[in-house]
Design a protein around this nucleic acid. Sequence first.
DNA 1: CCTTGTGAAGATATTCACAGCA
DNA 2: TGCTGTGAATATCTTCACAAGG
Lengths: 235, 235
Amino acid sequence: MSRRAVSANGRSGHGSQGIPEATIARLPVYLRVLYAFAEQDIPTVSSEELAAAAGVNSAKLRKDLSHLGSYGTRGVGYDVEYLVYQVSRELGLTQDWPVVIVGAGNLGRALANYGGFASRGFRIAAVLDSDPEVVGTQIAGHGVLDVEQMEQVVARHRVSIGVIATPAGTAQAVCDRLVATGVTSILNFAPVVLNVPSGVDVRKVDLSIELQILAFHAQRRSVVRVPQDAQAVGR
Amino acid sequence: MSRRAVSANGRSGHGSQGIPEATIARLPVYLRVLYAFAEQDIPTVSSEELAAAAGVNSAKLRKDLSHLGSYGTRGVGYDVEYLVYQVSRELGLTQDWPVVIVGAGNLGRALANYGGFASRGFRIAAVLDSDPEVVGTQIAGHGVLDVEQMEQVVARHRVSIGVIATPAGTAQAVCDRLVATGVTSILNFAPVVLNVPSGVDVRKVDLSIELQILAFHAQRRSVVRVPQDAQAVGR
DNA sequence: CCTTGTGAAGATATTCACAGCA
DNA sequence: TGCTGTGAATATCTTCACAAGG
């Protein structure tokens, strides 16, 4: 799956320390499901219900949540509102994260228009591109700026998260430049392995890798006909 | 990380059996790097070189490759061409995978235009949408078809991989319908947990989850100033 | 009672370190 | 000699199963 750079054992000084990476990766899913429960005005959920909705088993969910603290009530379950707050806080979503998107092609446009982007904590500070044809056009309410303005944009909006949606060929150069301006978290959609100095966190989203993993399993299925129930599914 | 449904221990009859899931997830990266070496006409690579380019450590790379067989030469390294072939074969990329994309919004368009899509094994059989405004328009050389034609398209092109690029609200319905027509591998871009019967493999790509994981680490970094070298990076 | 929180067991994954072979 | 392939050691993650507690 994805790339992780920072070793994540910074051991925070306050309450919770050393939350496992695998747990971190699931918290956003729990959070989304919790919001769904909240919207239906459901006040409390059991680990069983939450787990089912999130597609994991309940022991795992309980252990995950136990890393944040003891926020449940035995015999009852978890208070939805309260847990939303605690998970949000743990993920750092109680603060605002200005994001800069580099690359205003099809993908950049899709990202800028993606609803879940603006919601809950993330805000597009700017969309940048190097193509003079594209610079100046309007995308999701943002005028596309020239990539030359990266330094000013990052400084002015205190951007710490950069999204790379450029072609593979320019991704490393864009990345270097983002890092040079002080961006320390990068989400990379270009199909290349980025080289970054230590202290910079890179995550990768790669369509073709996902497809290839699917192909592997599909092939496997068609080669050996799997016995009826030698399969497990995420509920 | 991502979701995996099939338990993947089908134990194939021929040479290789039981390749770990973590290894499978890295093979596409190795493959991409190998292609880059091949393009530069480099005939052989050591595990050290390959690992560096792929952003992993060399012991891991060697162990990964050892699951496919003994394709290296001690004292020399791996033959690039040969390894490309072996990895491709293992991933099932020596055959053609027709893919149907459901949802022709910004994201669907971006996916259809994504170059790496058409390359190496994957072929867009059709792009479907339910919006009469969109049906009939042209995307990346494909006329958008009505989602009502899903069954015919899947049958005619023997599609086994479906990509869901619809809004969250309709994703489950689209998924159910794909499954009903016989699609057993699904790549989901909608921010929902899909329910599928056993035997169907779902992978999820979720922008906002990746952002939230980045936010967690970014917050962590800003709260506790990490000692200079208590960090490890993917090269 | 019912459900959380968690030690302990088990399963996977990573890394080390070196034997074995070209 | 140099690099692969791999047992053994370690670290991480998942699952079980039950004590603790509202």
